[in-house]
């Protein structure tokens, strides 16, 4: 399976340049603030930066050690970087908000969900309804990599995330996941 990583983004040029928030060039943004209120604002800004950065580069899994060297947490221009401990604090904050899940006990790798599964499910269901394909069966591959979904936001969605979104739809009674000979499929209602 192909995972894009945070550092790979460095070399991979993206069509639209990412717009950094003002805080990114504000040196103290990279020092965890001692004042509680200020720190809250700081963490909120960090969460939003991480999510929009991952969304912009379509990143789903993040390695904490690698993250430290990524441009998000390391602003070379002003020579400031967020420490591993501070990154952990930001990630923990994202976890509390439901946007992040740890992949291991040591908290070294995590899934970043810049859209939560329910939100993805909604997007997929909207596309299905718009195209009058309710009651049609799709393979998961067709949904995420088929020609029909080319240009849709969920095109290229990673398998685990796709499955989670479909599970969310299933829970709402809008879809049913079915096991087929060569993998999984889904029927929308």
């Amino acid at each position: 399976m192909f995972f894009r990583t945070l550092t790979a983004v460095n070399t991979a040029s993206t069509a639209m340049s990412f717009e950094w928030p003002w805080q990114y060039n504000f040196p103290p943004f990279f020092t965890l603030q001692p004042n509680v209120d200020t720190r809250q604002k700081q963490l909120a800004a960090w969460c939003s930066l991480v999510l929009s950065y991952c969304r912009h580069h379509k990143l789903y899994t993040v390695d904490v050690m690698e993250a430290q060297e990524s441009p998000v947490f390391n602003n070379k221009k002003i020579e400031r970087k967020l420490s591993v401990e501070a990154i952990q604090v930001v990630f923990e904050e994202l976890r509390k908000k439901g946007n992040l899940e740890w992949l291991d006990k040591n908290k070294s790798r995590c899934l970043v969900m810049w859209r939560r599964p329910e939100e993805w499910g909604k997007l997929i269901y909207q596309w299905v309804s718009k195209n009058g394909m309710n009651n049609t069966v799709f393979t998961l591959y067709e949904l995420s990599n088929g020609d029909d979904t080319d240009g849709e936001e969920f095109h290229g969605l990673e398998d685990w995330m796709l499955q989670r979104s479909l599970q969310a739809l299933q829970a709402e009674g809008k879809a049913e996941i079915i096991t087929m000979d060569d993998g999984k499929g889904v029927k929308f209602f």
Binding site: F26, P28, F30, T31, D37, Q42, E79, R80
Partner: peptide, 28 residues
């Protein structure tokens, strides 16, 4: 100034901490 939320602490500026005031941060 930190307590009032008017200043932010930067401890990566070398030997001595800098106290930044967003109100005076020109780029903003």
């Amino acid at each position: 100034l930190l307590k009032e939320g008017l200043a932010w602490l930067d401890s990566q500026a070398g030997a001595e901490a800098q106290y930044w005031l967003p109100a005076l941060f020109a780029e903003l």
